[in-house]
């Protein structure tokens, strides 16, 4: 079963995603796929907080910032993956060049193909994304490209996944499918 979880930030997406992945794994091998490549102290503190939150849940952490399908070669068969987050994965794929000046036009396609392979090879995948589409601001072209690209991935996942859930204040708005009991 594949699940897309999105919503605004600080609404409980990661916690809910962990819970969902735990249910789906049903005691089987489960992996937390950390896609963010840390670049400063703030990132590292955030990672430490997330690791503490996962303690005792039995997740093995995989650090995969690009080529998301590589998760499969690092994991046991019949694995459940929690990909946190699509947002960071896209960022890494879109701005491969460390100078960040050149956006890779193939990034969305590469992410989509990678996610397709991951879903085909895994038992369950839970994807966490971010809803960043509802503010009154004129962004620069790079940011706008990033927003449009993330939306393309979100919509691909929404179409492909069995369940689509929006988190708001820790509560679930179910847009598609059902939740694992």
């Amino acid at each position: 079963m594949n699940v897309l979880i999105s919503g605004g930030c600080k609404n409980g997406k990661s916690g809910f995603a962990q819970q969902t992945a735990m249910e789906l794994a049903a005691g089987g091998p489960r992996y937390y796929v950390a896609t963010m490549i840390p670049s400063d102290r703030e990132d590292r503190e955030r990672i430490a907080r997330h690791i503490r939150n996962r303690e005792g849940l039995g997740f093995e952490t995989l650090e995969v910032g690009r080529r998301i399908e590589d998760c499969l070669t690092l994991a046991a068969p019949d694995a459940t993956f929690l990909v946190d987050s699509v947002t960071a994965l896209l960022l890494n794929e879109l701005f491969c060049d460390p100078a960040g000046e050149q956006a890779d036009p193939e990034a969305v396609k590469r992410c989509r193909e990678g996610m397709k392979k991951l879903m085909a090879g895994a038992k369950n995948v839970v994807f966490v994304s971010d809803y960043i589409y509802s503010d009154a601001f004129r962004y620069d072209a790079y940011t706008e490209l990033y927003r449009a690209s993330l939306a393309a991935l979100d919509r691909f996942l929404a179409q492909t996944c069995d369940t689509v859930a929006e988190l708001c204040a820790g509560r679930v708005i179910l847009h598609k499918g059902g939740l694992p009991v």
Partner: peptide
Amino acid sequence: CQDIFCGVVPLGADMRAWREAT
């Protein structure tokens, strides 16, 4: 119509007026 209502209050007065009008 696009939902432009979930961000922080825009800094520019015309952007605030825009959000309000929308």
